[in-house]
Design a protein around this nucleic acid. Structure first.
Length: 925
RNA sequence: GCCCGGAUGGCGAAACCGGUAGACGCGGCGGACUUAAAAUCCGCUGCCCCUAAGGGGCGUGCAGGUUCGAGUCCUGCUCCGGGCACCA
């Protein structure tokens, strides 16, 4: 050894190593991806983050495996593009504006700056030249442009929808802002109100969205989307009211029409007013007010007792002329189907309950298979099984089965009859609704539309895009665009004075096309540069949380299909062809492969027990003092209880008599005895369940401190090791030392000089076997996103190498082969330390540009295997046998061991099941 | 309520196609080094029972079933998580 020992030089200083390599990679442009038609491409995208302020463990959990996968693909020979951006519009920025008087633009920009720095500390291979931020005009110009194209294509339209309306604030609230049917800000009631909104005709694509052909997506995601779309086959039937209005209903069971004894309309249905008789008016009005106080989710709860009110009106059943009463009930939703149903209580569970509740007629029309005829008065539940149609005029005697749609003979017969008699027609209904994209908010992409003075609508000229959000605005809780004259006043295409639409777009709209913008975020002629698109599209690997399984992914799929049909890819296709790439089918779907990670969950924690003094103002307490006191009795102050939730300065406190909203003005003193000095609201701890980490829930673990303490490489390794990636789980920092030891051991293996002493062929073969088994295992696991077992396999190799290092019993060539393979395999997971050690071994190029190690299958083969011997299915002995043992030899060996003989004594061998070389099972009796 | 998942030692987990349950790691226990602690190193570690060695029984949320053999397949439950259309 030289005078300066390796230990002096080579101490592992993770911070120094990580900062140095991050700077070096950036300088070299190691992760900048460029179009290269001579290499196969791989476009990897991980769902972009919302800039909530700090990068939390959940972000690391989502991003570092995606990064490792992208790095792995690069080592496998692909030209990899892996960009990053920010989904920067949204509600939290407006909450900050209302409650802390920070402009959303400032709040967002500051958060993004902070998160960019934190993202860099991760050491991911993000190509920052491709970054996009959805709240910048250079991005939302194209979000608006897409809206225009949708409008021109007839996909964007005006319609009505139910919204959470705050009569106090005169504005629409997000579901999140409504707690217990009240506005979380001021405790005032919130009602459901029908309002004019903008929609995208997503249902036009419902059928195509049901096909997942060619997509490598998780089965549950496909199932959830299919269920969400909810295709059902049946018929539309027209009933006429006594006032000769039409009520169209959709039913999957037109065969049971002869048993329809009443109708139910959604309380908001437009015909309710005309149908309602004067003597029923007050009851109907009362019911409609009550229904408006409930959310759709509450209304759909099936376990609730059925409620409803008779309108006094009647409609005529078109199949038999029967006069059926028309009711309204909240379990019928205006947004589903036609907002009206025909009720067949004898054969539908919900209708049955409703009929029994209100004493309505029940008329059976199916004779159950192999049972007695249904006896109406004694029925206790609806009959929904197969049988034969009865009491049904023209379709009497037709069989009814469990099949859906026309595949059911009775349904087919009923549809045919309806069509022949002009009473209805075959129809397909989808549960999915058109995409409501307008929001009555400020911090979003403006809808580039203008109301002309003549009442018409026109879109803003392309040359005038983007419609820019005005900066100088005041925040009160409702969108400042609504009364911003400077913004609203404009002129139409003919120079006439006109008004802008004050709505902005759903942020899902921004996130429905961002991976196109990554391709060329500075491109000014179109949303993306077709030269880039022709090479990189489509996205090969998309990763993100399972919570986006339906909405975001369905919108993204819809968007691409609409883009395709609007010809947005025409030029891209031409360029593809000129390079010999066939574009057919490449623009039908956005993401070829999808993988979901689970969620890193926060730990459970009780909220602080608060004692609040203050004055009551419109149902909520305005605090004059807030104090934390774990022992406070219920009468210690005006409001005493556990802090359940906090949004900026709004507290939800659980008291003995229920949830109370508390507002804490800036000047109100907050006293937390545990924390010395002056305290503020943000230091209050609120209740945490074991649930996902998110800024809004406050149960966030900050990775920065862990990076400081252990290094990014350890944090990355541990996140990939500690959980099954698809599943996630509660975060616990303690186990991290194991991953840290692993990284330090790798450091030790690579920096300790290796001298062979007692070299043996067996030791050489053993280490080579382990090395090549590990290469095979880790390679397979990385393809399948099985990070935890990949790291475990690397740890096992580490253990074997530590033994070899101690025993000095392998050739230097075998040692080096193992060491370099270990570094290369670990490189995607722990990029900094492996790069440092790679260079330490004397290489001058980057470990990240190395080819993934090749498996030597011959070296990996196991020649001796442990064979298990079972007697009657229980393990009784084990034997070391040659891996290629024959069935006869295995059986003979198994039967002849002392232990087995003892177990066989006194019994007769009835059967021997041999599965060489792993197992022999002897059945005796 | 509806749709989709999940449940394995004290903890995070592993187990290809139905074939050794608990790899890998944390924690714990015992030991070495140290004045001591930390770090590091060595050994043990699913539970229970008998024991001197060595054996035996039980065990993958619960109750059944199929099979020579079930964590894995089937039926019925329980509990937990995600989504339910304005959180992203």
């Amino acid at each position: 050894m030289s005078a300066s020992t390796p230990r002096d030089i080579m101490e592992y200083r993770h911070n120094e190593v990580e900062h140095r390599w991050q700077a070096a990679w950036e300088e070299q442009g190691l992760y900048r991806a460029a179009v290269d038609w001579d290499k196969p491409k791989h476009y990897a995208v991980t769902m972009l983050p919302y800039p909530s302020g700090d990068l939390h463990m959940g972000h690391w959990y989502a991003m570092t495996p995606s990064d490792a996968r992208a790095r792995f693909m690069r080592m496998k020979g692909y030209n990899v593009l892996f960009p990053m951006g920010f989904d920067a519009f949204g509600l939290p920025a407006e909450n900050a504006a209302v409650q802390r008087n920070v402009h959303p633009a400032k709040w967002t920009a500051e958060n993004i700056d902070r998160m960019r720095k934190q993202l860099r500390s991760m050491g991911a291979m993000f190509d920052w030249d491709r970054e996009m931020v959805s709240s910048e005009p250079s991005y939302y110009k194209w979000t608006e442009w897409f809206f225009k194209r949708m409008f021109d294509a007839g996909i964007a339209y005006r319609g009505e929808a139910m919204v959470n309306w705050s009569p106090t604030l005169q504005t629409v609230l997000a579901n999140e802002q409504v707690i217990d049917g009240k506005d979380e800000r001021n405790g005032q009631p919130v009602i459901q109100k029908l309002m004019e909104q903008w929609f995208f005709a997503l249902t036009k694509y419902a059928e195509e969205l049901l096909s997942f052909e060619g997509l490598d997506w998780p089965e549950p995601v496909k199932t959830m989307q299919a269920n969400w779309i909810g295709r059902s086959e049946g018929a539309e039937v027209t009933f006429r009211t006594e006032t000769d209005d039409e009520i169209v209903v959709f039913t999957t069971r037109p065969d049971t029409l002869w048993g329809a004894t009443f109708m139910v309309l959604a309380p908001e249905h437009p015909l309710v007013d005309t149908l309602t008789k004067p003597e029923q008016q007050s009851k109907v009005d009362e019911y409609r007010v009550a229904a408006a106080a409930q959310s759709e989710l509450e209304r759909m709860e099936e376990s609730r007792e059925k409620t409803g009110v008779f309108t006094g009106g009647y409609a005529i059943n078109p199949v038999n002329g029967a006069r059926v009463p028309v009711w309204i009930a909240d379990y019928v939703l205006l947004s589903y189907g036609t907002g009206a149903i025909m009720a067949v209580p004898a054969h539908d569970e919900r209708d049955f309950e409703f009929a029994r509740q209100f004493g309505l007629d029940v008329v059976p029309v199916i004779q159950p298979e192999g049972q007695e005829a249904l006896d109406e008065p004694s029925m206790v539940e609806a009959f929904v099984g197969p049988g034969t149609m009865v009491n049904s005029g023209p379709i009497n005697g037709v069989a009814t089965t469990d099949a859906k749609g026309r595949a059911n003979p009775s349904v087919a017969a009923a549809i045919d009859w309806l069509e022949e008699n002009n009473a209805g027609k075959e129809a397909i209904n989808y549960r999915v609704r058109d995409w409501l994209i307008s929001r009555q908010r400020y911090w979003g992409s403006p809808i580039p539309m203008i109301h002309r003075r003549d009442g018409g609508l026109e879109s803003v000229a392309d040359a005038d895009l983007p419609v820019v959000l005005p900066k100088d605005v005041e925040f009160s809780g409702r969108s400042p665009l609504v009364d911003n004259e400077e913004f609203l006043a404009t002129t139409d295409s003919e120079g006439e004075a006109a008004r802008r639409v004050s709505d902005t777009m759903d942020t899902f709209m921004c996130s429905s096309w961002y991976w196109f913008r990554y391709l060329s975020p500075q491109f000014e002629d179109a949303p993306f540069d077709p030269e880039e698109a022709a090479y990189w599209l489509p996205v090969d690997t998309y990763t993100g949380g399972a919570e986006h399984a339906v909405m975001h992914l369905l919108y993204a799929r819809f968007f691409v299909k609409a883009m395709r049909d609007m010809g947005v890819f025409a030029e891209t296709e031409t360029i593809m062809r000129s390079h010999g790439r066939d574009p057919s089918g490449l623009f039908d779907e956005p993401f070829t492969m999808l993988r979901n990670q689970g969620q890193v969950l926060g730990a459970e924690r009780l909220g602080d027990r608060l004692v609040v003094e203050g004055t009551l103002d419109r149902g909520r307490l305005v605090a004059t003092s807030v104090r934390v006191d774990p022992d406070a009795t219920a009468d210690a102050g005006a409001v005493v209880g556990e802090l359940i939730r906090r949004t900026e300065n709004l507290l939800q406190v659980e008291t003995e008599s229920g949830l109370v909203g508390v507002e804490v003005p800036a000047e109100t003193p907050v006293d937390i005895p545990e924390i010395a000095g002056s305290n503020d609201v943000s230091q209050l701890k609120h209740h945490l369940e074991i649930q996902r980490m998110s800024k809004s829930k406050g149960n966030v673990v900050n990775p920065d401190e862990l990076v400081e303490l252990y290094g990014a490489d350890t944090v990355r390794t541990h996140l990939m090791f500690a959980f099954e990636w698809q599943k996630g789980g509660p975060w616990d920092t303690r186990g991290m030392v194991g991953s840290h030891r692993f990284i330090e051991d790798v450091w030790k293996l690579a920096t300790t000089p290796y001298f062979p002493e007692q070299v043996s062929d067996k030791a050489n073969a053993d280490l080579r076997r382990k090395t090549h088994q590990t290469i095979a295992k880790v390679g397979d696991d990385m393809v399948e996103f099985k990070w935890n077992t990949a790291v475990a396999a690397l740890m096992t190799l580490r253990n074997a190498m530590l033994e070899s290092l101690k025993a000095h019993d392998v050739d230097p060539a075998v040692w080096t082969e193992a060491l370099e393979a270990l570094l290369k395999m670990l490189a995607p997971i722990a990029p900094h330390v492996t790069e440092e050690l790679w260079h330490h071994l004397g290489h001058s190029d980057s470990v990240h540009t190395q080819a993934w190690p090749e498996v030597d299958a011959a070296a990996a083969v196991e020649d001796v295997v442990t064979m298990v011997i079972q007697v009657n299915g229980k393990v009784r002995d084990r034997l070391e046998v040659a891996a290629d043992i024959t069935e006869e030899d295995a059986t003979a060996a198994a039967m002849s061991t002392e232990k087995v003989k003892a177990w066989l004594e006194g019994g007769e061998v009835r059967k021997v099941i041999a599965r060489p070389p792993k197992l022999v099972n002897i059945v005796v009796g």
